[in-house]
Simulated scan of single mutants.
Amino acid sequence: MPKTLNPLQLIADRWQPSARFVRGAALATVVMAVIIVVTGGAVRLTQSGLGCPTWPTCTEESLTPTGAMGINGIIEFSNRMLTYVLCGVVGVFIIASRALAPRRRGLTRLGWAQFWLVMGNAVVGGITVLTGLNPYIVSSHFLLASGLLTVAVIGWQRSREGDAAPRDLVARPVRQLSWVLVAASAALIVIGTVVSGAGKHAGDASKDVRRIPLDWREVTQLHVDFVFIVVGLTAALWFTLRAVKSPAQPRRKVLEMFVVLLLQGVIGYVQYFADTPELLVGVHMFGSCLVWIAALRVFLSLRERADAPIVPAPSDEPGAPVKRIGREAVQPAASSR
């Protein structure tokens, strides 16, 4: 029976990327995930959410914006086009991971997870337009983008590790403290989306755009409360890591998160007392991405994965196949005669 032609396998048969290339491709997916979040925020902050009033085309008669739609149509349509760029970057990561020798199925699965998140979020983006910027759909659109960023960061980390089972670098109670930190950071971001959904930046100049029926100042106070919780947990984790004499890398990652939180807090306070100017709100959205990336890096730094062991085939004949589990594989040596 003839083999099924798999395009990814055909590429893998002819091209084996370096581990460095795969790491670069993984980092590119992280960068693009951040860009998608920031440009999506720019669409809302420039009142361009309905710049293209329908989906998947820009208008009922045109795929692209017309001159009469002005700058808002261009901004909205440009953000839609970035989805194709993101798909291309994720596609490169998938292909490179699949072609890497030895094959690392975990990396390929993370690439495909990103692809389907992009596709799902594109549909949610269309529903956002068709529902006239329903604030709950807009919030889910942002949270799905944050999910994409999460998978991208994990893929970037996994591209720099081996495939052995993870080994904790600290005791379980310390790991549990990092879980609480990640959960609190996630809650902080979710509450931030509620602030956006209830605030004055509706995404379009039309007065018909719905908002979440909450006092945005009260929700902002809850958001600030969670900022203090996350800062406190970050400080507690740093002192705990020092007390247990953890490796230097986890402590450094916690310090990086602490710095990002301080900068994000300063931007948040300035934008609040300046009556949320659009530019500062956009910078704050970028900062939220950095906070989430920092929280994930703290969590991932508390364990390590070595290269998986190489298990040779039972045969000791020259040229016998090798069961490749780690990053490198060797042929078994020829038996002496």
Rank of each mutant, 00 (worst) to 15 (best):
E304F: 09
H141E: 06
G232H: 14
R252W: 03
H201Q: 12
L86N: 01
V43T: 04
A186W: 11
A68R: 13
V231W: 03
P213I: 12
R242Q: 06
D316Q: 15
V230T: 04
A236P: 07
F77W: 02
T54W: 11
A25M: 03
Q9P: 05
T29D: 06
N134D: 04
F273R: 07
L169C: 06
V270E: 01
L50H: 08
I71M: 15
G40H: 05
Q16E: 04
P65K: 00
G132V: 10
A25W: 07
V34R: 00
Q47T: 09
W179I: 13
F93R: 02
A313C: 00
N6I: 03
S196D: 07
A68P: 04
M32V: 01
G147T: 04
R175Q: 14
W156I: 02
T131A: 01
L10M: 12
T83V: 08
Q271G: 01
V123C: 13
D225H: 10
A295W: 04
P17R: 11
D163L: 01
W112L: 07
S78H: 12
A113L: 01
V259G: 08
Q114K: 02
L45T: 05
V231D: 01
L255N: 07
Q221D: 12
V22E: 05
T4P: 01
A122V: 06
V118R: 03
L300E: 00
D13N: 09
S139I: 10
C58K: 07
L177C: 09
I191T: 08
E278F: 07
R20V: 13
I325L: 15
V291N: 13
A171W: 11
I75W: 07
G265A: 15
T54A: 09
F77C: 00
L222V: 13
G282D: 03
G265M: 14
V195C: 13
A306L: 02
R14A: 10
I191A: 09
M119T: 15
V123Q: 10
T83I: 05
G111V: 09
